[in-house]
Nucleic acid binder design. Structure first.
Length: 207
DNA sequence: GTGTCGATAATCT
DNA sequence: GATTATCGACACG
């Protein structure tokens, strides 16, 4: 595509987590990778809110605090990257002030920048809408792993950051809310509408 | 298009 | 030793 807009301000993340999850839709996730001159990026089209110590689906439920989730307890606007299912990485944006361990999981991107790199990392993807249509697909596509845990999302010098495409108050597309994916163990928290996606977008993990 | 199932290892009990 | 904020392959039709 074309020029990448400026990086987002930390205040953006220092807000209610559901507000951030909705406001992130339409913004750009940008990866500065040492092996490629051009940034790799895509529009965020699907997110989930994880509401910290009282949310039974959150990694920080019941004040859980170990090395893995250290980043979630820190400042807003940082990448919380975790490894799961023995195979996959997923990336979150931390929200709320320090010591309020909440985050937004990025679940899908619409690729916009450096498509050759994305295709090289996802050689078996059968269609353009299958490149980044899931939380572990997009970390494969952008080569995001545990080494990026704690990266500052509010600097264009960072290996991973968010660029602000639209103003926080101005919505360009309709947003659909639905239950989060893969959290059936979380009892009453499994049904809450904490997943958000751009209505009708073809790059989401599911409609 | 749908559904089922195995892979695989860090993390926590 | 059990669990897991997933994916891709394969079987259907």
């Amino acid at each position: 595509m074309h020029m990448i807009p400026p990086h987002i301000h930390r205040d953006f993340f220092n807000r209610d987590t559901v507000t951030v999850a909705r406001a992130l839709l339409g913004q750009l996730l940008v990866r500065n990778h040492p092996d490629t001159k051009e940034p790799i990026a895509g529009i965020i089209v699907e997110t989930e809110a994880y509401l910290g110590v009282r949310d039974k689906a959150a990694h920080t439920y019941n004040y859980h605090r170990t090395d893995r989730v250290r980043t979630m307890w820190g400042l807003p606007g940082h990448a919380y990257v975790y490894f799961t299912y023995g195979l996959h990485h997923c990336v979150n944006c931390t929200t709320m002030p320090e010591s309020t361990p909440q985050a937004v999981l990025i679940r899908a991107l619409q690729p916009t920048h450096n498509l050759p790199f994305i295709h090289s990392m996802r050689p078996k993807a059968k269609s353009a809408t299958n490149l980044c249509s899931g939380p572990a697909k997009l970390t494969q596509a952008l080569d995001i792993a545990r080494a990026l845990d704690g990266a500052d999302l509010c600097s264009d010098q960072s290996p991973l950051y968010i660029a602000q495409v639209r103003k926080r108050s101005h919505s360009t597309s309709k947003i659909t809310a639905s239950p989060r994916i893969g959290v059936n163990y979380a009892q009453e928290w499994a049904k809450k509408p904490l997943r958000f996606h751009l209505t009708g977008n073809l790059h989401v993990s599911r409609q």
